[in-house]
Amino acid sequence: MEQTRTCVTADDPCIVCTDAAIRRGDTTIWSHGTFAIPRGTVTAVVGTNGAGKTTLLNAELGLIPLSHGNMRVLGGAPGTNNARIGYVPQSYTSDIDSSLTAEQSVLLGLTGTRFGIHPVTRAQRAKTREAMEFTGIADKAKLRLSELSGGLRQRVAIAQALVSDPELLMLDEPLANLDLASQRATVRILAQLNSELDMTIQIVAHDLNMLLPILDGAVYLLDGHPHYARLDQVLDSDLLTHLYGTTVQVVTTPQGDMFVTPALTRPDASADTHRTDEVAQFHHHEYDHDRAQ
């Protein structure tokens, strides 16, 4: 796939939040969000159910307004650069019309609501073919979504998000309900996008293990506040235990591979809370210019 990029530097992060907060009615979803996500990185968004992970993505897309603070996405206000963003919602495989073919579904990434009204151009079909070849589903073009497995549907969703050559790709729980082989295939595609196109990728996830080989860092929602840290800082047993409210171990194998697992030999840690200044002591969250180079 080809991609036209604006000139960016290490001082030009993909997403910047400054004391950002979101409320729904009288409820604060999260607040005091101050962090920057470097361009060209793969970032997980982690936290417990209801912590506001999907809310963060929706705020970045301009679908939910901030109640306080500031957010910049690809150098502009949320929503202003959505043409440069590819988005794969968690509900894609259940919401989309299963009678559509894989090719028709990917074309929606270019035609949107115009599908079926205006003719599809040769260039649009070429871009669709390119995205499907990249995700390994070109041979499924004429099959209906109802004929495809969950893993193949997820590849269709990614191809639809890629067809417009985005600079930033957002995925909400892309590995949920997929078997192990499909998870690995999806992660390989994301790894290619990042390594070959230098695409910035943001992934909402519950389980980090399958993603660990490709992650550079994570936004973690802890005690109602989003923080960004590099992966080596996030892979901390104490931090993850507090984050998930249950005892978590970070294990390194003799081969040097790492994985995160519940510590079943010890009782669950009691979920507690900390003040913002206490949470800040877990890690140093300033944007690391050297990491982005």
Score class of each variant (00 low, 15 high):
Thr247Lys: 14
Met132Asp: 07
Asn81Thr: 12
Thr273His: 14
Thr101Gly: 10
Ile85His: 08
Leu110Val: 04
Met199Cys: 15
Gly109Asn: 03
Gly75Met: 09
Ser195Asp: 09
Tyr92Ser: 08
Phe282Asp: 06
Ala51Trp: 05
Ser99Ala: 10
Asp223Glu: 14
Ser182His: 14
Gly76Tyr: 09
Thr27His: 15
Pro213Glu: 02
Val73Ser: 06
Thr247Cys: 04
Ile15Met: 13
Asp236Arg: 08
Gly47Trp: 03
Ile201Leu: 15
Glu2Met: 08
Glu130Trp: 00
Ser164Ile: 00
Leu222Lys: 08
Ile37Val: 15
Ala280Cys: 05
Gly116Cys: 04
Ala205Arg: 09
Val234Lys: 09
Asp139Phe: 03
Gly116Met: 07
Glu196Asp: 14
Met132Glu: 12
Pro213Arg: 11
His68Tyr: 09
Ala229Arg: 02
Thr27Met: 11
Phe35Cys: 11
Ala141Leu: 02
Thr34Phe: 01
Gly86Arg: 09
Ala205Val: 13
Leu63Thr: 02
Leu197Glu: 09
Arg114Glu: 07
Ser270Asp: 10
Lys53Asp: 05
Val260Trp: 04
Gly224Arg: 03
Val156Glu: 00
Arg153Pro: 02
Ala131Met: 06
Val234Ala: 10
Ile96Ala: 09
Ile29Glu: 04
Ala20Thr: 11
Gly136Asn: 11
Val279Cys: 14
Ala126Trp: 05
Arg230Ser: 12
Ser105Asn: 01
Met258Ile: 10
Leu221Ile: 15
Asp232Asn: 15
Ala205Glu: 12
Leu66Ile: 08
Thr261Gln: 12
His227Val: 05
Leu215Pro: 05
Leu152Glu: 14
Pro174Ser: 12
Phe282Glu: 01
Ala77Asp: 13
Pro119Glu: 13
Asn209Gln: 10
Leu211Gly: 12
Pro262Phe: 01
Gln183Phe: 04
Gly62Ala: 07
Gly112Leu: 02
Ile85Val: 15
Phe259Gly: 03
Leu66Asp: 02
Arg230Phe: 03
Leu168Lys: 06
Pro267Gly: 06
Gln160Val: 03
Asp238Lys: 13
Gly25Pro: 08
Val279Tyr: 00
Asp97Phe: 10
Thr27Cys: 03
Ser67Phe: 10
Ala126Met: 13
Ser67Lys: 04
His285Asp: 02
Asn209Glu: 04
Ile117Met: 13
Ala218Phe: 09
Glu196Tyr: 04
Arg84Trp: 01
Ala51Asp: 04
Asn209Arg: 04
Gln192Thr: 04
Ser146Met: 11
Val250Lys: 04
Val120Gln: 11
Val204Arg: 09
Ala138Cys: 09
Asp290Lys: 14
Val42Ile: 14
Val45Phe: 11
Tyr287Ser: 10
Ala131Leu: 06
Ala36Tyr: 05
Leu175Ile: 09
Gly47Phe: 02
Ala181Trp: 00
Leu145Gly: 03
Ala44Gly: 12
Ala159Trp: 04
Ile22Tyr: 05
Ile22Gln: 03
Gln255Trp: 05
Arg122Trp: 00
Pro78Trp: 07
Asp19Leu: 00
Thr111Arg: 15
Gly52His: 03
Ala102Tyr: 06
Arg188Trp: 00
Gln183Asp: 00
Glu278His: 09
Gly76Thr: 11
